[in-house]
Simulated scan of single mutants.
Amino acid sequence: MKITDSQLYKYVPKAEKLWLSWLPTDEEIPEHIFSKRFERKMKRLIRNQRRTPRIRKIFLTAKRITAAVLVLTMLSFSGLMTVEAYREKFIEMITEVMDDLTHFKIFSSWNESIRMGEIIFGYLPEGMSEVERMCDEETQGQIIYFEDLDGKQLRIDIQLVTEETDYEIILDTELVDSTKV
Rank of each mutant, 00 (worst) to 15 (best):
E130N: 06
E118V: 06
K105T: 12
K152P: 06
I91K: 03
N111A: 01
L72P: 10
E112H: 10
R40M: 10
S113E: 14
T61P: 08
I120N: 10
I29Q: 01
I65M: 11
V176R: 15
S35I: 02
M116Y: 01
Y167V: 03
Y123S: 15
L20T: 03
R56G: 00
V69P: 04
V12R: 04
I55W: 12
F38M: 14
R37Q: 10
I3S: 00
M81D: 02
T102E: 11
S113K: 11
A68R: 04
S6G: 06
E96K: 12
M42I: 11
V176W: 13
F121R: 01
R115D: 09
I94N: 15
I120G: 02
G141V: 00
A62S: 11
E174S: 09
R87E: 04
M128T: 01
Y9P: 04
H32T: 12
I143L: 06
L124T: 00
L101S: 15
I3N: 00
F77K: 00
S129A: 10
I143S: 11
D166V: 02
D157N: 14
I114L: 03
I158L: 07
W22V: 03
I144C: 02
Y145D: 02
L80T: 09
N111P: 08
K2T: 12
V131F: 08
A85G: 03
S21Y: 05
D157I: 07
E137H: 12
L20M: 10
R54N: 06
D136I: 01
H32W: 14
G117N: 02
L70H: 15
I169N: 12
P30A: 01
R87Y: 04
L149R: 15
Q142Y: 11
E164C: 07
G122E: 08
V181Y: 15
E16F: 09
Q142V: 07
S21T: 04
A62C: 13
L8M: 02
F59Y: 15
E28Q: 12
K14L: 10
K57E: 14
E147I: 14
E138R: 10
P30V: 03
I3E: 01
R50D: 01
F90L: 11
L124H: 04
E92R: 15
V71R: 08
T73I: 13
L80A: 05
E168I: 07
M74N: 07
D100F: 12
Y167G: 00
I156R: 00
T139D: 02
L72M: 09
M81L: 07
G122R: 09
R87V: 02
F38P: 13
Q159A: 08
R56D: 00
L8T: 01
E168F: 05
S21W: 06
K180A: 11
S76K: 03
E126L: 10
D166R: 06
Y86F: 12
R47P: 07
P53K: 13
Y123F: 11
M98A: 14
I170L: 08
K89P: 05
L20W: 03
I55H: 08
K36F: 13
D136S: 10
T61Q: 13
I29M: 02
V69D: 05
Q7R: 05
L72H: 09
R51F: 11
S35G: 03
L70E: 07
E126M: 09
E126W: 06
D177W: 05
Q159D: 04
H32Y: 14
K63H: 05
V161E: 00
Q140R: 02
K105Q: 10
K105W: 10
M93S: 13
